[in-house]
Amino acid sequence: MSVSEKRTFLKIYLFQPGLRIWHWVQFLCIVVLFVTGLYIGDPFFTGSGSGEPTVVYPHILSMDLVRTIHFSAGYVLLVAFLYRIFLFFTKKAHRALMAPKHLWMLKDVILTYVFIKKSYPPVIRNPLARLAYIFIFALIVFQIWTGFAMYGMSNPNGATATVVSQWTLALFGNEFTLHVWHRIVAWLFFLFLIFHVYLVFYNAFLFKEGELASMASGNRWVPLHRIPVDAEDALECKIEDVLGDAGCDRRG
């Protein structure tokens, strides 16, 4: 541990550039989809022009434009999600949130958050976050699925309608119910955003390990006396190798 002795922090390269780009693309998509979706479901401002629609149409933020933005963002979200699935197979760190090994700490984390316990063991991926991300991925799948089901019905005999819409409508009973569910789930993203942002700041301030910056830089700075118990979920090799000079994922 000759090198490590000089340092007090171990740098763990947690998020590859692809994953960081995906995260922010997805963030933008979800924000755009949420805002435009709120408008589409219930247009909270109406056209300022009072003339004929053909005259007014090009000059204002029309429903058609808002819908086009919504649909485009939906396609981007779909592609981003497929890319995330691809990433899942490329690095161990990208599979970290699916590793059930450290879910046992969930209780400790929750008890700490509600001030019953003093602290929980150091972790690289918080077990509560792991659960939340699986949940949010499920919601994204739901939104993409229901979204394209509704989108497909603009041409009831088209390919999208055949592949996605028809059986989905049969499942939900009727199309309007599908719209209602799409909106209910959209609000869950809003709630997730609040908790996600708060907890990221909370952890960044509490542990000062670079939690907040990690989705920009990709790195987490772990103090050597607080080596995460689940560090190996994010590393391609044994933690001993990282701490020793034979390190595999250590850069600088």
């Binding site: 109406t46 056209g47 629609p53 007014v56 204002i60 029309s62 808002v66 603009s154």
Partner: peptide, 17 residues
């Protein structure tokens, strides 16, 4: 859909409600 055959559809597209 009635929406796609509706003569008021241009007002929808222009955001006039």
């Amino acid at each position: 859909r009635i929406h796609d055959t509706c003569y008021r559809r241009p007002f929808f597209n222009a955001g006039q409600f």
